[in-house]
Design a binder for these strands. Structure first.
Length: 415
DNA sequence: TCTGGGGTCCTAGGACCC
DNA sequence: TCTGGGGTCCTAGGACCC
């Protein structure tokens, strides 16, 4: 007899759109999209017409002429998302939050207090509905993978419990794209060899999958198809990287365009790194050209950084190297910076390592003590007066904000 | 003429060390 | 001196997730 199903996966339904329908009752039951130029989220009524997040607004309107666009109430998203996760936390401390609207939980240790996992799941759904006014779907199973699939099957506004004795019956009749890690490319590759369902995947020889998808992916999918999911619940995952990007339309690859854009991105990232004392050693830039192909370039430093201007300068050097390698590309459509190899608990005093103080004080030095103190001053002013109270001249001007900064914040992981 | 934004993990080759 | 193997780190690209 298998162990009990105690893993929950809870997922708020069409979260941003549901919040808008909660705030404005006249929107309930109608197709709505959050956003304007680009769809940030769509209600189920809009999804029925094929409207998807990330879709250009114009295309969405073509698919659904009666679509209602609403600008987002971003503060409410954060508040209600946090509140929903707290409801889960009232039952068990073992909660792994995946994003603003989604979390795993293990209720093995609290069934004696609150009843069977299925009852706990029902109670969570009931409380989120009555206390917050939002629909949330929950899957209950023995593993994370199966719980996640169960919640997807439960949507919208449902509950699915997978009995440990009938796991494979449940799993094998579903299509492969419901599996974690199967996207459009993998789905298409599997379709080439006639594999459409998870059951067919399970019966496919391992060597065949590994040849088709590579050793790691092949082995992983084979394991998941037989419901062997080794992943443990990890309540306190720390972020491994922090980044920012900006789609800039179609702009010439000139310094006047690139420098302010990179400074703005570096400013956003570096401020986050400093706030959590997590400087990073690797800087990666991505340049997307007019044809939407993109190229990355990275450098790993001997010591971690979190100063805005240093990050911006390194990023600019990397972008220059990319452009030098692609002399025919005159137009760029996106710039991105990411910082990884983040330090765990970095004492800010150590950012200028012992022995480098002299170098730091040298005028024009990259380590620049003056720059460091400037960042600190900016951070303090922003703490008191808000982000836009101060900034790096060029970065505050002329940077197109196709997506509101509040929306960006929602997607940021806690460092 | 606006195809978003923030992340994770895997792969494959090369450098380098033992 | 030559050959080989294993481990680690770095880099660039890609698939995928929300």
């Amino acid at each position: 007899m298998a162990t009990t199903a105690t893993i929950l996966h809870a997922d708020l339904d069409a979260f941003y759109a549901s919040v808008e329908q909660l705030l404005d009752p006249s929107l309930r039951g109608r197709p709505i999209a959050v956003g304007g130029g680009v769809v940030l989220a769509a209600s189920y009524e809009a999804k029925a017409f094929g409207v998807r997040s990330g879709m250009p607004g114009r295309q969405a309107r073509e698919l659904c002429p009666q679509l209602i666009f609403v600008s987002g109430h971003f503060k409410h998203y954060q508040r209600l998302g946090d509140a929903a996760i707290r409801v889960i936390g009232d039952f068990t401390p073992l909660v792994e939050r995946i994003s603003i609207d989604e979390a795993f939980a293990d209720v093995a240790g609290c069934t004696h207090l609150f009843g069977a996992p299925a009852e706990i799941a029902a109670a969570i759904r009931q409380r989120v509905r009555t206390e917050l006014g939002l629909p949330i779907s929950v899957g209950v199973a023995r593993t994370k993978h199966l719980a996640k699939i169960a919640s997807q099957v439960a949507k919208p506004d449902g509950l699915v419990v997978v009995d440990p004795d009938t796991e494979l019956e449940f799993l094998h009749e579903l299509t492969v794209e419901l599996m974690w890690g199967v996207g459009p490319v993998t789905k298409a590759r599997l379709a080439e060899i006639g594999v459409l369902t998870i059951g067919q995947l399970a019966k496919t020889p391992g060597w065949s999958l590994e040849r088709l998808l590579g050793p790691a992916t092949g082995e992983k999918l084979a394991a998941l198809a037989w419901n062997r999911d080794p992943r443990q619940l990890k309540p306190h995952r720390r972020a491994r990287s922090a980044g920012a990007q900006s789609a800039i339309g179609r702009k010439p690859a000139d310094e006047q365009i690139i420098r302010p854009a990179l400074l703005h991105l570096a400013d956003r990232i570096a401020a986050r790194l400093r706030a959590k004392s997590r400087p990073g050693r690797t800087v990666t830039v991505r340049v997307r050209f007019a044809d939407l192909n993109s190229v990355t370039r990275s450098v790993t430093l001997g010591a971690p950084i979190s100063a805005t201007v240093i990050l911006a300068e390194l990023a600019e050097e990397l972008v220059r190297a990319v452009l030098a390698d692609h002399p025919d590309e005159k137009v760029i459509s996106l710039l991105a910076i990411s910082v990884s190899h983040l330090e765990e608990n970095w004492d800010l005093e150590l950012e200028l390592p012992l022995g480098l103080e002299d170098e730091a004080r040298r005028p024009g030095s990259r380590l620049g003590m003056a720059r460091w103190t400037a960042d600190c001053a900016v951070d303090k002013i922003r703490d008191r007066f808000g982000w836009d109270a101060i900034g790096y001249g060029a970065a505050t001007l002329g940077v197109s904000r196709s997506v509101p900064d509040e929306f960006r914040k929602l997607a940021e992981k806690d460092l």
